[in-house]
Design a protein around this nucleic acid. Sequence first.
DNA 1: CGCTTGCCTGGAGTGCACTCGAACTCTCTA
DNA 2: TAGAGAGTTCGAGTGCACTCCAGGCAAGCG
Lengths: 161, 161
Amino acid sequence: MTVLDTEPAVLDTAPPAAVCTVLEQQRHGRPVGRDRYTISEVAGCTGLSVHTLRWYERIGLMPHVDRSHTGQRRYTDRDLDWLDLVGRLRLTGMPVADMVRYARLVREGEHTLAERERLLTAHREDVRSRIAELRSTLEVLDYKIDIYADARRRAEAAEGA
Amino acid sequence: MTVLDTEPAVLDTAPPAAVCTVLEQQRHGRPVGRDRYTISEVAGCTGLSVHTLRWYERIGLMPHVDRSHTGQRRYTDRDLDWLDLVGRLRLTGMPVADMVRYARLVREGEHTLAERERLLTAHREDVRSRIAELRSTLEVLDYKIDIYADARRRAEAAEGA
DNA sequence: CGCTTGCCTGGAGTGCACTCGAACTCTCTA
DNA sequence: TAGAGAGTTCGAGTGCACTCCAGGCAAGCG
């Protein structure tokens, strides 16, 4: 209705450039130009199990998946984009409850834009501080591994002498 | 007995410079110059609960804690150093089972040095690749947050006009 | 026609890392 | 001497994120 008419899709999915990159490499790539995938195809290309995919839907983490005339799930490219985003958020440690909240906000439409932005921004801060934390531990690890390596070298030298 | 007589302690604990830095800031610092701490003091300075401290001991993650004449735990500075290391490994996502394995290797003595080095080195690789993963997700997050921020700015501009 | 394969549902089970409860002992202060 | 407060053990409970199971349906093949 207002400012977003031109690009409505891009807000609830991963950026085009990043579509199915990380996850896709885990297994087979996304079958091209089909836009209707069975649950096992999606499992294959995302690395998630079919159980997990159904469970994501049950808890409200999927934005309503299409069905075939016999009631089987048919995932679209947009669903895969969404799963790509979900996979990234999960990999960066966002709790499932928060992802569900985000999914709900997307479903509720445009008036939740600000809150979605806040949610992602908060998570970004979280990720940043975790990177810092990991880096500081990396130093400790380097220090200890150095000591072990030193001990090993000295032991090897003594043995050789 | 062999090459390690001079520095036996430093191998099973955190480096001196890093002693109780991260964890210490979470609560009160380590009481100075005492070397005998009650379980609640340790809980206070590590941020772990007393339940968790006892549980760590039960599962073999603590290298045998001293007791007072009435049977109460008395932690030493070395125990705190160990807990500092454990805390770092935990923060970097090492499974408790692996930490227990590491603790067992330390208990078993010097002939496990090589395996301990391998274990830590493997974990370091793990941490490094997780940092890379987090960074790549950070880019996606930046991208999406930019889009939300753009939408917000445009909405605000439209409203102001 | 029967068999296999793939999918469906709702609910129960699993593994991890704690977290808590019940019942008890010990020490210290009023 | 009574009660509070901190400690003890062992076993059970919790929350999260899956993971699996039983029982059933629909399509394709020999």
